[in-house]
Design a protein around this nucleic acid. Structure first.
Length: 425
RNA sequence: GGAGAGGUGGCAGAGUGGUCGAAUGCGCGGGUUUGCUAAACCCGUGAGCUCGUAAGGGUUCCGCAGGUUCAAAUCCUGUCCUCUCCGCCA
């Protein structure tokens, strides 16, 4: 969330930003309530001061009359305090809700527009688009021929949107993870295998809404736990409520987790096969930085993604996400969209966001500079290294051959153990 | 899952109703002393919000959330976490 004082002092910019981001947030009501809350808070502190002074006096009273009169005064003050405090608490709850509904400010260079049609392509990968002298199949058909994915089995066991990977697809999944983790480890990222469940307060801190009609999140009945939608949640939560030394920054993690998404309201969108599923495995990058370093870190995360997909030999374009498509926490966001011959279009395979201090403020993740007073909010960034399901779509479709076999990308061969996935005789 | 013990400042560790934002030690910062370093000694040293140009003041915070009381680190309830022992288990 944004800093309250910042919103009060920059009301017009905040309102314009809401409009650009296509977010409805009642900034005016926030300002009115927050002003009221501050006033009330001040009065409460005055009353507290009086009550504290009164309580201290009791011990020093010399006569019983003086003593009981002082106690009476203390009682009255406490009554006033509890009355005011309960009013203030209600205001606080509403102010907090409004504050959370206001999105992060957007990078001045982010394209302005209402939705993803305003996104702009700002780069392409090294691999050229494949040229087929046959009609390419999509990954669902390819998988069928090679017995790589069992969608029917997944549906029987867990419902539509679940699947079994089989045979070489399992090796590909392992190889992709192995490749991404060792790639990032060599570049200073700390590998972490993270919990697949997290407390709802952590979900909220990272900007996810655990319950409600529109939620993307599966929650566990009778607990305050949810299945994570990404390791961004667990890695961001790692520093929630903590203060770390500035010398330790930047902190770069690559976390592996399973990701669970209800995909509520996503029916009808491009969602065939593995593209939009309820569960997948993902290697996620996450960084904590000083404010002045977050833009450079954002470039670094993007270049990690580009290198990985270049090394996998997959054609892609880089998309600069428009303000209306940024979501709540991102200051700026770049997506990699890989070419997917089966649908004859690009499809999102990674996404990297600079959330500046927006996420950290919610999480209360701070840093401290040695020998300086006070603390400051960290900047947080995240980026997909490999989302296995979507990477599989791109690999299968780009590396297919006329006979329905699939060439294994060179960098994955050591781990997969073969060059070609072909129909069993 | 059962039985105990405990969660206090950067760390260790006192504190069982008012004089406690909290002893003491370590660490850290500054200073005195001093060929240099060390030692010794002295001073300082948590965070949030808020008022103030500042100096400084107010307020909140002793895992978290409630409760009792004029007054809570201290008493009560719930909850989370950690440790030890037992049971179960990959």
């Amino acid at each position: 969330m944004l800093d309250r004082k910042f919103i009060l002092e920059n009301a017009d910019a905040v309102k314009l930003n809401c409009k650009n981001r296509n977010v409805t947030a009642d900034v005016d009501r926030f300002i009115a309530l927050e002003t009221e809350r501050r006033e009330g808070q001040r009065r409460l502190e005055e009353l507290n001061q009086e009550a504290n002074a009164t309580a201290k006096k009791v011990g020093k009273c010399t006569t019983p009359e003086e003593r009981s009169a002082t106690i009476e005064l203390g009682k009255k003050l406490r009554e006033q305090i509890s009355q005011l405090a309960s009013v203030l608490k209600n205001t606080e709850v509403e102010v907090d809700l409004l504050q959370r509904s206001i999105p992060n400010m957007a990078h001045p260079d982010a394209p302005v527009g209402d939705d993803d049609t305003a996104n702009t392509a700002c780069g392409y990968g090294k691999t050229p688009l494949p040229k087929f002298d046959f009609t390419p199949l999509d990954h669902v058909e390819l998988a069928k021929g090679l017995d790589l994915i069992d969608f029917e089995g997944g549906a029987r066991v867990a419902g539509a949107g679940f699947y079994f990977l089989k045979n070489e697809a399992v090796l590909l999944e392992l190889a992709l993870q192995q490749y991404a983790v060792s790639f990032l480890m060599k570049r200073g990222f700390i590998p972490a295998s993270t919990p697949d469940l997290a407390k709802n307060e952590i979900l909220q801190g990272t900007g996810y809404i655990p319950r409600g009609n529109e939620t993307q999140i599966y929650s566990i009945e009778n607990t305050d736990l949810s299945l994570v939608a990404t390791a961004e949640i667990t890695l961001g939560g790692l520093l929630a409520g903590r203060v770390i030394d500035a010398e330790e920054l930047p902190l770069k993690f690559c976390g592996t987790s399973h990701c669970f998404r209800t995909e509520a309201g996503a029916a009808g969108r491009a969602s065939r096969g593995l593209y939009r599923v309820h569960q997948f495995t993902k290697i996620e990058m996450f960084a904590f930085t000083l404010p002045e370093h977050s833009e450079a870190m954002h470039s670094e995360l993007l270049s990690m993604e580009r290198e990985i997909f270049d090394n996998l030999g997959l054609p892609y374009r880089v998309v600069d996400t428009a303000t209306g498509d940024l979501g709540g926490p991102a200051y700026r966001k770049f997506d990699l969209e890989a070419w997917m011959p089966g649908r004859g279009d690009y499809g999102e395979v990674t996404s990297t966001s600079n959330c500046t201090d927006y996420q950290a403020r919610r999480l209360n993740a701070r840093y401290k500079i040695k020998d300086e007073r006070g603390t400051h909010f960290l900047h947080t960034l995240n980026g997909t290294a490999i989302a296995v399901s979507r990477a599989l779509v791109a690999i299968m479709e780009n590396y297919q051959r006329a006979d329905g076999s699939i060439v294994v990308p060179e960098v994955l061969r050591p781990c997969v153990g073969c060059d070609l996935i072909e129909r069993k005789k």
